[in-house]
Protein backbone atom coordinates (compact mmCIF):
# COMPACT_ATOMS: atom_id res chain seq x y z
CA UNK A 1 0.00 0.00 0.00
CA UNK A 2 1.26 3.46 -0.96
CA UNK A 3 -0.37 6.62 0.32
CA UNK A 4 0.94 10.18 0.41
CA UNK A 5 -0.94 13.24 1.61
CA UNK A 6 0.16 16.73 0.65
CA UNK A 7 -1.43 19.79 2.27
CA UNK A 8 -0.90 22.01 -0.75
CA UNK A 9 -1.62 20.34 -4.06
CA UNK A 10 -0.21 23.48 -5.71
CA UNK A 11 3.27 22.17 -4.93
CA UNK A 12 2.77 19.10 -7.11
CA UNK A 13 1.16 21.27 -9.79
CA UNK A 14 4.30 23.41 -9.93
CA UNK A 15 6.52 20.32 -10.00
CA UNK A 16 4.64 18.95 -13.00
CA UNK A 17 4.86 22.32 -14.77
CA UNK A 18 8.61 22.17 -14.18
CA UNK A 19 9.10 18.79 -15.87
CA UNK A 20 6.25 18.25 -18.33
CA UNK A 21 7.93 19.93 -21.29
CA UNK A 22 11.14 17.92 -20.91
CA UNK A 23 9.49 14.57 -20.21
CA UNK A 24 6.35 13.01 -21.67
CA UNK A 25 6.33 10.23 -19.14
CA UNK A 26 8.37 9.27 -16.11
CA UNK A 27 8.64 6.64 -13.43
CA UNK A 28 7.97 7.77 -9.87
CA UNK A 29 9.94 5.47 -7.58
CA UNK A 30 8.31 5.33 -4.16
CA UNK A 31 9.97 3.99 -1.04
CA UNK A 32 9.62 4.72 2.65
CA UNK A 33 12.12 7.57 2.27
CA UNK A 34 9.98 9.36 -0.32
CA UNK A 35 9.43 9.70 -4.04
CA UNK A 36 12.27 9.84 -6.56
CA UNK A 37 12.29 10.43 -10.26
CA UNK A 38 15.16 10.31 -12.70
CA UNK A 39 14.61 10.64 -16.43
CA UNK A 40 16.28 12.02 -19.53
CA UNK A 41 14.66 13.97 -22.33
CA UNK A 42 14.24 12.14 -25.65
CA UNK A 43 17.49 13.57 -27.04
CA UNK A 44 19.47 12.39 -23.96
CA UNK A 45 20.92 15.88 -23.60
CA UNK A 46 19.30 16.73 -20.27
CA UNK A 47 18.20 14.82 -17.21
CA UNK A 48 15.68 15.58 -14.49
CA UNK A 49 16.39 14.24 -11.03
CA UNK A 50 13.72 14.89 -8.44
CA UNK A 51 13.55 13.87 -4.82
CA UNK A 52 10.55 14.43 -2.54
CA UNK A 53 11.22 13.44 1.06
CA UNK A 54 8.59 11.45 2.91
CA UNK A 55 8.98 13.88 5.83
CA UNK A 56 7.79 16.72 3.57
CA UNK A 57 4.36 15.12 3.29
CA UNK A 58 1.59 15.46 5.85
CA UNK A 59 1.23 11.68 5.79
CA UNK A 60 3.39 9.18 3.95
CA UNK A 61 3.09 5.44 3.87
CA UNK A 62 4.91 3.07 1.52
CA UNK A 63 4.90 -0.57 2.64
CA UNK A 64 6.71 -1.91 -0.41
CA UNK A 65 8.90 -0.15 -2.96
CA UNK A 66 6.75 0.82 -5.89
CA UNK A 67 7.62 2.13 -9.36
CA UNK A 68 4.78 3.99 -11.00
CA UNK A 69 5.04 4.79 -14.70
CA UNK A 70 3.11 8.00 -15.20
CA UNK A 71 2.03 9.82 -18.35
CA UNK A 72 2.73 13.38 -17.26
CA UNK A 73 0.24 14.93 -19.65
CA UNK A 74 -2.54 12.85 -18.06
CA UNK A 75 -1.41 13.85 -14.59
CA UNK A 76 -1.35 17.53 -15.58
CA UNK A 77 -4.99 17.15 -16.71
CA UNK A 78 -5.94 15.77 -13.31
CA UNK A 79 -3.99 18.45 -11.45
CA UNK A 80 -5.89 21.13 -13.38
CA UNK A 81 -9.01 19.93 -11.54
CA UNK A 82 -7.79 21.11 -8.12
CA UNK A 83 -7.10 24.44 -6.45
CA UNK A 84 -3.59 25.19 -5.25
CA UNK A 85 -4.54 25.01 -1.59
CA UNK A 86 -6.60 21.83 -1.85
CA UNK A 87 -5.29 18.93 0.18
CA UNK A 88 -4.33 16.01 -2.04
CA UNK A 89 -3.81 12.33 -1.39
CA UNK A 90 -2.28 9.89 -3.86
CA UNK A 91 -2.85 6.23 -3.30
CA UNK A 92 -1.95 2.93 -4.95
CA UNK A 93 -2.21 -0.70 -3.95
CA UNK A 94 0.88 -2.91 -4.23
CA UNK A 95 1.30 -4.03 -7.87
CA UNK A 96 -1.55 -1.78 -8.88
CA UNK A 97 -2.00 -0.62 -12.46
CA UNK A 98 -3.82 2.54 -11.42
CA UNK A 99 -3.11 5.50 -9.18
CA UNK A 100 -5.89 7.25 -7.27
CA UNK A 101 -5.60 10.99 -6.75
CA UNK A 102 -7.99 12.63 -4.29
CA UNK A 103 -8.55 16.32 -3.62
CA UNK A 104 -10.35 17.84 -0.68
CA UNK A 105 -11.00 21.50 0.02
CA UNK A 106 -9.77 22.75 3.39
CA UNK A 107 -13.32 22.84 4.78
CA UNK A 108 -13.88 19.32 3.39
CA UNK A 109 -17.05 20.44 1.64
CA UNK A 110 -15.82 19.26 -1.73
CA UNK A 111 -14.08 15.97 -2.30
CA UNK A 112 -13.09 14.59 -5.68
CA UNK A 113 -11.17 11.56 -6.82
CA UNK A 114 -9.52 10.59 -10.07
CA UNK A 115 -8.12 7.28 -11.15
CA UNK A 116 -5.24 7.29 -13.57
CA UNK A 117 -3.88 4.32 -15.48
CA UNK A 118 -0.23 3.58 -14.82
CA UNK A 119 2.21 2.58 -17.57
CA UNK A 120 5.08 0.15 -17.84
CA UNK A 121 8.07 2.26 -18.76
CA UNK A 122 11.54 1.13 -19.67
CA UNK A 123 13.66 2.60 -16.95
CA UNK A 124 17.07 3.75 -17.92
CA UNK A 125 18.77 5.05 -14.81
CA UNK A 126 22.12 6.77 -15.07
CA UNK A 127 24.77 6.71 -12.40
CA UNK A 128 25.75 10.30 -11.70
CA UNK A 129 29.22 10.44 -10.17
CA UNK A 130 29.86 12.55 -7.06
CA UNK A 131 31.53 15.69 -8.35
CA UNK A 132 33.32 18.49 -6.56
CA UNK A 133 32.24 21.34 -8.76
CA UNK A 134 34.72 24.14 -9.52
CA UNK A 135 32.04 26.84 -9.39
CA UNK A 136 28.82 26.96 -7.40
CA UNK A 137 26.68 30.01 -8.14
CA UNK A 138 23.64 30.83 -6.01
CA UNK A 139 21.35 33.49 -7.39
CA UNK A 140 17.70 34.54 -7.42
CA UNK A 141 15.79 32.08 -9.59
CA UNK A 142 13.79 34.91 -11.18
CA UNK A 143 17.03 36.64 -12.24
CA UNK A 144 18.33 33.46 -13.86
CA UNK A 145 15.02 32.97 -15.70
CA UNK A 146 15.14 36.58 -16.87
CA UNK A 147 18.69 36.23 -18.21
CA UNK A 148 17.92 32.98 -20.04
CA UNK A 149 14.79 34.47 -21.56
CA UNK A 150 16.45 37.74 -22.55
CA UNK A 151 19.60 36.26 -24.04
CA UNK A 152 17.86 33.45 -25.93
CA UNK A 153 16.46 36.15 -28.22
CA UNK A 154 19.94 36.62 -29.65
CA UNK A 155 21.32 33.12 -30.06
CA UNK A 156 20.76 29.40 -29.50
CA UNK A 157 23.69 29.00 -27.13
CA UNK A 158 24.51 30.64 -23.84
CA UNK A 159 28.08 30.87 -22.62
CA UNK A 160 28.35 30.86 -18.81
CA UNK A 161 31.73 32.06 -17.60
CA UNK A 162 32.38 32.08 -13.88
CA UNK A 163 35.39 33.78 -12.30
CA UNK A 164 36.20 35.21 -8.90
CA UNK A 165 34.80 38.57 -10.00
CA UNK A 166 31.41 37.22 -10.98
CA UNK A 167 29.48 35.28 -13.54
CA UNK A 168 29.01 36.36 -17.14
CA UNK A 169 26.27 35.10 -19.45
CA UNK A 170 26.90 35.73 -23.15
CA UNK A 171 25.35 34.90 -26.46
CA UNK A 172 25.61 35.99 -30.07
CA UNK A 173 23.68 35.50 -33.28
CA UNK A 174 22.57 37.11 -36.50
CA UNK A 175 21.66 40.47 -35.01
CA UNK A 176 24.67 40.81 -32.73
CA UNK A 177 25.75 39.82 -29.27
CA UNK A 178 24.62 40.20 -25.67
CA UNK A 179 26.35 39.97 -22.30
CA UNK A 180 24.99 40.05 -18.77
CA UNK A 181 27.44 40.16 -15.91
CA UNK A 182 26.51 39.58 -12.30
CA UNK A 183 28.90 40.40 -9.48
CA UNK A 184 28.75 38.79 -6.08
CA UNK A 185 26.38 40.76 -3.92
CA UNK A 186 28.23 42.54 -1.14
CA UNK A 187 25.19 43.38 0.95
CA UNK A 188 21.69 42.00 0.79
CA UNK A 189 18.72 42.03 3.12
CA UNK A 190 17.58 38.50 2.40
CA UNK A 191 19.84 35.62 1.47
CA UNK A 192 17.67 34.61 -1.47
CA UNK A 193 18.12 38.02 -3.09
CA UNK A 194 21.89 37.78 -3.27
CA UNK A 195 24.35 36.34 -5.75
CA UNK A 196 27.08 34.22 -4.17
CA UNK A 197 29.91 32.37 -5.89
CA UNK A 198 32.04 29.62 -4.44
CA UNK A 199 34.92 29.01 -6.81
CA UNK A 200 38.05 26.91 -6.83
CA UNK A 201 38.74 27.28 -10.56
CA UNK A 202 37.32 29.53 -13.27
CA UNK A 203 34.96 27.74 -15.66
CA UNK A 204 33.56 28.71 -19.05
CA UNK A 205 31.00 26.43 -20.71
CA UNK A 206 28.41 26.69 -23.47
CA UNK A 207 24.84 25.41 -23.19
CA UNK A 208 21.72 25.26 -25.35
CA UNK A 209 19.30 28.09 -24.46
CA UNK A 210 16.28 25.92 -25.22
CA UNK A 211 17.03 23.57 -22.33
CA UNK A 212 17.93 26.35 -19.90
CA UNK A 213 14.58 27.98 -20.61
CA UNK A 214 12.81 24.68 -19.95
CA UNK A 215 14.62 24.33 -16.60
CA UNK A 216 13.40 27.82 -15.69
CA UNK A 217 9.85 26.44 -15.62
CA UNK A 218 10.81 25.42 -12.07
CA UNK A 219 11.22 29.07 -11.01
CA UNK A 220 7.90 29.17 -9.06
CA UNK A 221 9.21 26.36 -6.83
CA UNK A 222 12.08 28.29 -5.31
CA UNK A 223 13.33 31.85 -4.85
CA UNK A 224 16.90 30.67 -5.40
CA UNK A 225 18.64 28.58 -8.02
CA UNK A 226 22.02 26.92 -7.66
CA UNK A 227 24.21 26.43 -10.73
CA UNK A 228 27.12 23.99 -10.37
CA UNK A 229 29.80 23.81 -13.04
CA UNK A 230 33.14 22.16 -13.70
CA UNK A 231 35.20 22.04 -16.88
CA UNK A 232 33.63 19.80 -19.55
CA UNK A 233 30.99 18.14 -17.37
CA UNK A 234 27.23 18.64 -17.37
CA UNK A 235 25.84 21.74 -15.68
CA UNK A 236 23.58 21.17 -12.67
CA UNK A 237 20.67 23.57 -12.17
CA UNK A 238 19.09 22.96 -8.79
CA UNK A 239 15.86 24.26 -7.28
CA UNK A 240 15.14 23.41 -3.66
CA UNK A 241 11.50 22.90 -2.84
CA UNK A 242 10.87 24.19 0.65
CA UNK A 243 10.59 21.33 3.17
CA UNK A 244 9.73 18.85 0.41
CA UNK A 245 12.91 18.14 -1.55
CA UNK A 246 14.50 19.37 -4.75
CA UNK A 247 14.61 19.22 -8.53
CA UNK A 248 17.97 19.04 -10.27
CA UNK A 249 18.44 19.36 -13.98
CA UNK A 250 21.63 18.17 -15.68
CA UNK A 251 22.61 19.55 -19.06
CA UNK A 252 25.43 18.33 -21.28
CA UNK A 253 27.55 21.18 -22.65
CA UNK A 254 28.09 22.09 -26.27
CA UNK A 255 31.70 21.74 -27.37
CA UNK A 256 33.82 23.13 -30.13
CA UNK A 257 34.09 20.64 -33.00
Amino acid sequence: MFEARLLKSGQLKKILEAIKELLKEATFDCSDSGIQLQAMDDAHVSLVSMCLKSTGFDKFRCDRNLSMGINLESMVKIMKCCSNDDIMTIKAQDNADTLTIMFETKNQEKMSDYEMKLMNLDQEHLGIPETNYSCIIKMPSSEFARICRDLSQFGDSLVIACTKEGVKFSTSGDIGSANVKLSQTSTFDKEEEGVTIEMTQAVCLTFACRYLNLFCKATPLSTQVILSMSGDVPLVVEYQIEELGCIRYYLAPKIEE
Binding site: H44, V45, H125, S157, Y250, A252, K254, E256, E257
Partner: peptide, 14 residues
Protein backbone atom coordinates in the same frame (compact mmCIF):
# COMPACT_ATOMS: atom_id res chain seq x y z
CA UNK B 1 30.72 25.35 -34.82
CA UNK B 2 29.53 23.84 -31.55
CA UNK B 3 28.36 20.27 -31.08
CA UNK B 4 25.81 19.29 -28.48
CA UNK B 5 27.11 16.44 -26.30
CA UNK B 6 24.75 13.88 -24.78
CA UNK B 7 24.73 12.83 -21.14
CA UNK B 8 25.92 9.35 -22.15
CA UNK B 9 29.37 10.88 -22.71
CA UNK B 10 29.55 11.63 -18.99
CA UNK B 11 27.24 9.30 -17.06
CA UNK B 12 27.06 5.51 -17.24
CA UNK B 13 23.94 3.44 -17.35
CA UNK B 14 23.23 1.84 -14.01
Amino acid sequence: NMTQRTLMSYFNKK
